[in-house]
Nucleic acid binder design. Structure first.
Lengths: 144, 144
DNA sequence: TCAATGAAAGTGCATATGCACACTTAACCG
DNA sequence: CGGTTAAGTGTGCATATGCACTTTCATTGA
């Protein structure tokens, strides 16, 4: 009976850890009105506008997922979208409210980030993230 | 301007990697009719029945999330639920169809697992998963 | 010029996730 | 015996995720 082997599923173990850590950041950010999943979107737009497709590629998520994830951010006026000259491209930009929210969330995020970093130490976290990136590149290379 | 710091958010990097790896397993399992998220549920029930709460705790997910995740599995008759004598407890068990599906999915899962394992090697994956478990325990300990 | 092509964005569907809250019932207690 | 408490489960809401398919529009080519 090979069922015990499923317990070592890398996908499952990763998802379980990600659930726990996402909750941790969500609780830390609770007072800010931002979720852990929304913060990277705003942060990536802070240096300057981007198109929808480029932002989705950078975030490593399906383009159509980003369409929905942006909706509450646009309704709250944290992100603005405007058509660009070329083709149907949309230019997404951070509004002043969005920038203000990022500044407000920063200490909450920083506290969670620092505290979680301490659990393993900088070096091991860096290695872990680098390893995950390596694995991610390996499997996307396999699609070519 | 501290916005560049957000790029190193552990939560974001974990979530991005998890998205990629979940897709990888989902594609590998495509022919089986099972998703990467459903496989651990069936696998955990294979050795014997469990209650809803115990299963949710083992999976490390919110109990109410499990209620929904079980719905398609019950409708497809892979999992059966029956009330138990004590309290309102529900006893969840794998049906014969569920067990058959697990057997069918095994080679597909095994191929994905083996292939992904090769990307870093056994040792580094084991260390990575162990580190994530350590971090997870640290942050849940902080809630007491 | 106009049809074909291709790029960019959006929709419908199904599942995944967790919080706040409600419901049900067994056990416990006066 | 009746009221309270605690445990176990389910619902409503909002967001997260990706696939198949559609829509829109600029560019390319005959």
């Amino acid at each position: 009976m090979p069922f015990a082997e499923y317990q070592h599923c890398l996908c499952f173990n990763l998802r379980r850890a990600t659930r726990a850590i996402t909750q941790y950041y969500d609780h830390a950010l609770a007072g800010s009105g931002l979720r852990a999943t929304q913060l990277p979107i705003l942060a990536r737009l802070a240096p300057g506008p981007m198109t929808m497709s480029d932002l989705a590629a950078w975030l490593g998520m399906d383009r159509t997922t980003l369409v929905r994830n942006l909706r509450p951010l646009e309704e709250a006026n944290y992100v603005a979208s405007a058509p660009r000259a070329r083709g149907r491209q949309l230019e997404l930009s951070l509004t002043e409210e969005g920038a203000a929210l990022l500044r407000k969330a920063y200490p909450l995020w920083k506290e969670a980030q620092t505290s979680l970093t301490r659990s393993l130490g900088d070096a091991r976290w860096a290695a872990l993230i680098a390893d995950l990136a390596t694995a991610g590149e390996t499997i996307s290379a396999g699609r070519n």
